[in-house]
Deep mutational scan, measured.
Amino acid sequence: AEKTGIVNVSSSLNAREGASTSSKVIGSLSGNTKVTIVGEEGAFYKIEYKGSHGYVAKEYIKDIKDE
């Protein structure tokens, strides 16, 4: 099942092309942005936001229960 997560940073969080800190940054998400978690790979979540996919470090995403 898809989960919703909240970007848990004070400034912004980089979204990357792949599940690695050396992957190209494809965008950034500001704190408290809601994202859909579609998968996980190592220390990263694969997320969907406004129709695009990217990878973000798990430690900066807070899971919330689907309402």
Score class of each variant (00 low, 15 high):
23 S>W: 04
65 K>F: 12
56 V>F: 01
10 S>T: 11
13 L>I: 15
17 E>Q: 09
1 A>S: 13
65 K>A: 10
24 K>M: 08
44 F>G: 00
15 A>T: 09
22 S>L: 11
57 A>I: 10
43 A>Y: 07
46 K>F: 06
1 A>G: 13
52 S>L: 14
56 V>W: 01
15 A>N: 02
32 N>G: 15
36 T>Y: 13
48 E>S: 09
22 S>R: 09
40 E>Q: 08
28 S>Y: 12
60 Y>M: 07
28 S>V: 14
49 Y>S: 01
19 A>F: 05
22 S>C: 13
50 K>L: 11
50 K>F: 10
21 T>G: 08
23 S>E: 03
27 G>T: 07
54 G>H: 05
45 Y>E: 01
26 I>K: 03
26 I>Y: 03
50 K>C: 13
36 T>A: 07
61 I>F: 04
61 I>H: 04
50 K>V: 05
18 G>F: 15
11 S>T: 14
64 I>C: 10
67 E>L: 14
46 K>S: 02
46 K>I: 14
32 N>R: 08
64 I>W: 08
64 I>D: 05
22 S>F: 09
2 E>V: 15
66 D>I: 14
48 E>T: 11
9 V>A: 09
18 G>N: 10
2 E>W: 15
25 V>S: 06
3 K>A: 05
38 V>T: 06
47 I>T: 03
25 V>C: 08
66 D>R: 09
36 T>M: 09
62 K>M: 11
32 N>P: 04
5 G>Q: 02
24 K>W: 05
13 L>F: 04
47 I>L: 01
41 E>N: 06
45 Y>M: 02
50 K>Q: 12
59 E>G: 06
35 V>S: 00
34 K>G: 03
20 S>H: 08
44 F>R: 01
12 S>R: 12
8 N>D: 09
58 K>D: 00
46 K>W: 06
41 E>C: 14
41 E>Q: 08
18 G>P: 02
40 E>C: 09
9 V>Y: 07
1 A>P: 12
2 E>D: 09
63 D>E: 13
2 E>P: 15
51 G>N: 07
35 V>A: 01
18 G>L: 12
29 L>F: 05
64 I>H: 05
47 I>N: 02
51 G>E: 06
11 S>F: 10
49 Y>G: 00
4 T>A: 06
26 I>W: 03
6 I>W: 12
38 V>L: 12
34 K>S: 06
36 T>P: 01
28 S>P: 07
29 L>E: 00
15 A>H: 02
29 L>S: 00
54 G>Q: 03
42 G>D: 05
58 K>H: 01
51 G>W: 05
16 R>F: 15
23 S>C: 10
20 S>K: 05
9 V>P: 07
63 D>P: 10
30 S>M: 14
51 G>S: 07
30 S>N: 10
46 K>Q: 06
47 I>C: 05
35 V>T: 00
41 E>W: 07
38 V>R: 03
29 L>R: 01
13 L>V: 15
6 I>H: 05
61 I>A: 01
14 N>R: 10
31 G>K: 14
42 G>Y: 04
8 N>Y: 09
4 T>L: 08
43 A>L: 11
27 G>V: 08
